[in-house]
Design a protein around this nucleic acid. Structure first.
Length: 754
DNA sequence: GAGCACTGC
């Protein structure tokens, strides 16, 4: 093998940011932020707390730190009203498994601070809990609150940005409480709910509780709401945090406030915001300087190496570093973080190529790739145990940063890059998303590093200098500043709220709001005075992008509700329908040709869905799977779309849209479908230009049809599209041909409907 | 001529 391959990238050893075992490390860490272990004794912790608290609210004492925590979790007796909510059969009847769980619980870093923590929450309306990964905060805090009686008779909600987190946490906590899932401990995520009258601790996605706002604006079923992973600043978390501030004001204040005699003083609300990273003060300030409590985590130490000089080619640097690890370091799998699929696939090829030239005495290399667009069976290969005398090398996107934990990782190679979607708002022609490679943030770097220390001590190689690390932003821009607000604004309108008046932690800029309002007006969802129209109220009832709920509402006119539901169900599914395996593109295109509709992607999707439903009705699971595989279709998309469709049918019934009684197929139906979609996508339309590109009808932007589209090569006079995405060029995706004459009248139609 | 990650009673 060429020597250059094994020439190590210049790397500089740095002390660990995670190995907080020694004082030396602690001091270093303090430079960025001081973590106080609630289980730790005074001196170390108090100092930092003082500094922190004086910055925040001037309180120098801390209950968390000032108490000695002799009492363990069984101390229900210390609370006024336990309400039978303690762990069931805690005495005597516990099985060995349950005992082991209790033992584990009491060993968590957070366990020793339990009483102090409860006291803080009892005394404050809002508590900010800053905890490292592995502290146990997400599973334990809700149980502490329940066992202490703080929740009275109400429920404790714990919100999560991701569905899997919500469900698996509920499983875990139900086991710890030694109860059946759905009794005392439950969860609610879209399409899946396990809860009952008995449920006191409920894990839900943030989106779920935001939806719940629409039917219960005061969230009166919950007496404690714990917002977890708040640092991720998802759009829905931000909306929730803003609403909670309002709700708490209404629920906790005496009823004389502003003539709103409805304030329910008998049902006050407590808020706990949990964050894993450095920006706790922002939450604290937002909630009137709420107290911040720190909990140290438990993580195996990870050695961090930074590159001595910046690496121009991060993929090449990653490869050299990998082989450096492979030849010099003890066994253990390697995880490489890369920005996207393209880098992953090309690096995989390079690594495999060079791995073949390894000397015989070196272990062989097994590469796995992981990214969201990849088939799940492929992604899951990373979970297979590494065969003896082999080293696994996993090439992954951000998917492995938070969503998926891969066991056995000892080494992390961090390129310091990721791709991020950013919405570019423009009033004319509508905004569009950009998807560009950029530097990661500090908290993201820490998260990636932490992936090497899940099971034992590890090593992280950062392919950027320490200086570059120091120059990184602390955390990313909140999503609310990076995405289209059309759906959120519509949903808020049904609550009588205007986004621009909402007390948000970060306020989106004017263009983003104006662009969303314009879109909503085009759809007929709001009128000239920005007031919600009856059609808009219908649209908001659907868990869909307003463009698509508008299409559903419009489809009634064309007697084609059913096929439009099929299409929007597929389009709003989280995974793509058409699988893209880079080196089998021609085969995939060939296999899909039978679904392609000359009028474009929307009807192509409809054809595929109908074909699948036919197969699904007649054949076994394995036949179905094979059929999907053969046609390069993602069966998960179909399965999810069927769930979504069922949900949409229910909403249709509720808002008085009749789904039944339409005949399938025919030109008339096709026409109606395109026209319905055209109502929703009127703002997303463009005319053909002489040079073969398209120009927006409502803006000046020149766009191209995405190469993945079924009508990419066709030069049709006018198109509608699902969205625009800027990568190398501005591409329109999800494109259909539409008669020029039609969509000029659409706007007028939408307004009339309004 | 091409694909960061999530989510919705």
């Amino acid at each position: 093998m060429p020597a250059a391959v094994y020439k190590p990238s210049p790397l500089v050893r740095n002390p660990s940011y995670f190995g907080l075992k020694t004082d030396k490390n602690h001091k270093r860490h303090k430079k960025s932020i001081s973590w106080v272990d609630v289980s730790d004794e005074e001196d170390r912790g108090k100092k930092s707390l003082k500094r922190r608290n004086s910055a925040v609210n001037g309180h120098h004492d801390s209950a968390v730190n000032g108490h000695k925590h002799k009492k363990r979790r069984h101390s229900n007796d210390s609370s006024p009203q336990v309400n039978g909510a303690g762990p069931s059969q805690i005495n005597g009847t516990l099985g060995t498994k349950a005992k082991a769980l209790q033992e584990q619980r009491s060993q968590l870093p957070i366990a020793k601070g339990r009483d102090a923590l409860i006291e803080e929450i009892r005394q404050n309306e809002v508590t900010i809990l800053l905890g490292e990964t592995g502290s146990g905060k997400t599973t334990q805090v809700p149980q502490y609150i329940l066992e202490s009686g703080l929740a009275r008779n109400g429920m404790i909600a714990v919100t999560q940005p991701r569905k899997v987190a919500a469900t698996s946490l509920a499983h875990r906590v139900a086991a710890e409480q030694n109860t059946t899932l759905g009794d005392l401990v439950g969860y609610a995520v879209r399409f899946d709910e396990k809860s009952s009258d008995q449920t006191r601790i409920k894990y839900l996605t943030d989106g779920m509780i935001v939806r719940e706002l629409m039917s219960d604006p005061l969230l009166s079923n919950y007496s404690v709401i714990i917002v977890d992973e708040a640092h991720e600043r998802t759009l829905r978390t931000d909306l929730l945090i803003a609403n909670l501030k309002n709700i708490q004001k209404q629920r906790n204040q005496p009823s004389d406030a502003k003539g709103k005699g409805k304030a329910n003083t008998s049902n006050p609300l407590k808020i706990v915001v949990m964050s894993a990273t450095l920006d706790a003060e922002k939450f604290s300030k937002f909630y009137h300087n709420a107290k911040i409590i720190y909990v140290k985590g438990r993580q195996h130490p990870v050695k961090i190496y930074h590159a001595a000089e910046s690496q121009l080619d991060y993929a090449d640097a990653a490869m050299r570093t990998f082989f450096q690890i492979h030849t010099d370091q003890p066994p253990g799998d390697v995880l490489i973080f890369l920005p996207g699929q393209e880098d992953i696939e090309s690096l995989q090829k390079s690594i495999e190529l060079y791995a073949k030239q390894l000397p015989a005495d070196k272990p062989a290399v097994l590469t796995c790739t992981m990214f969201a667009a990849q088939d799940h069976s492929q992604n899951n290969k990373a979970f297979n145990p590494t065969p003896p005398n082999m080293r696994k090398c996993i090439l992954a996107t951000n998917i492995a940063e938070t969503s998926i934990t891969i066991p056995g990782i000892k080494y992390v190679i961090d390129t310091g890059k990721c791709k991020e979607k950013q919405y570019l708002a423009r009033i004319s022609g509508g905004g569009f998303d950009t998807l560009l490679t950029r530097d990661i943030t500090k908290s993201s770097a820490m998260q990636r590093t932490g992936r090497a220390g899940r099971e034992g001590s590890g090593v992280c190689f950062r392919l950027y200098t320490e200086e570059a690390f120091q120059n990184m932003a602390v955390s990313g821009e909140p999503e609310i500043l990076r995405c289209s607000l059309t759906a959120s604004i519509l949903n808020l309108k049904t609550l009588g709220q205007n986004l621009e008046e909402l007390d948000l932690m970060d306020k989106p800029d004017f263009d983003t709001i104006a662009s969303a309002l314009k879109t909503l007006w085009l759809l007929g969802a709001i009128d000239q005075k920005q007031k919600l129209t009856p059609a808009g109220r219908k649209m908001a009832a659907f868990p869909l992008e307003p463009q698509y709920s508008c299409a559903v509402v419009a489809s009634v006119q064309y007697n084609c509700v059913a096929p439009v539901l099929d299409i929007v169900s597929i389009l709003s599914s989280s995974s793509k329908l058409f699988l893209d395996v880079t080196d089998q593109r021609t085969a995939a295109a060939e296999a899909r040709r039978m679904f392609v509709h000359p009028r474009g992607d929307h009807l192509t999707v409809l054809n595929a869905f109908r074909a699948y439903k036919e197969i699904a009705a007649a054949d076994s699971k394995s036949v179905r799977r094979e059929w999907c595989r053969k046609h390069f279709l993602n069966e998960r998309t179909f399965i999810e779309a069927k769930d979504i469709r069922e949900q949409l049918v229910l909403v249709c019934r509720r808002v008085g849209i009749n789904v039944e009684g339409e005949k399938e197929g025919g030109e008339e139906e096709e026409d109606g479908v395109i026209r319905s979609m055209g109502h929703g996508l009127a703002g997303n339309s463009a005319f053909l230009q002489p040079d073969g590109t398209y120009k927006q009808t409502m803006g000046q932007t020149i766009i191209k049809i995405h190469p993945g589209s079924s009508i990419c090569d066709k030069k049709v006079p006018a198109i509608i599209y699902d969205d625009l995405m800027y990568t190398n060029q501005i591409y329109a995706r999800g494109v259909s041909s539409i008669p020029k004459s039609f969509f000029l009248s659409v706007q007028a139609f939408n307004q009339r409907q309004a």
